[in-house]
Amino acid sequence: MATTYFTEDHEWIRVENGVATVGITDYAQEQLGDLVFVELPETGRTLKKGDTAVVVESVKAASDVYAPADGEITEANAALSSDPSLVNSAPTADGWLWKMKLADEGQLSGLMDEAGYKAMIG
């Protein structure tokens, strides 16, 4: 059974068997506007919570997407190299950004669930 968390930075994290799939929320993609480039991380890179994992670039600006916890990148969504607009059209499905093996899943325990996130964005 997967658990999905949400951050105040408008990321979603779906955790299954210690591996987190991370993306940005529909609200976030709408705020950013049309994406034209996603700078993806290399597989095997280790990240600390708060490190920049991915940079998403809209027509106008670049925005960092942070690692929600410590861990190691196991996969980046290669489909985004040729079609960054997947993040706009399917932010919580085909537009996922990266997967990481979590060092300590407990680091996510303070995050919001979907109801909490929806209440935050209002």
Binding site: G33, D34, S58, V59, K60, N88
Partner: peptide, 11 residues
């Protein structure tokens, strides 16, 4: 800054 169509479509 943008309307619902978005910057790409507007452009």
């Amino acid at each position: 800054l943008t309307y619902p169509a978005g910057v790409m479509k507007e452009h």
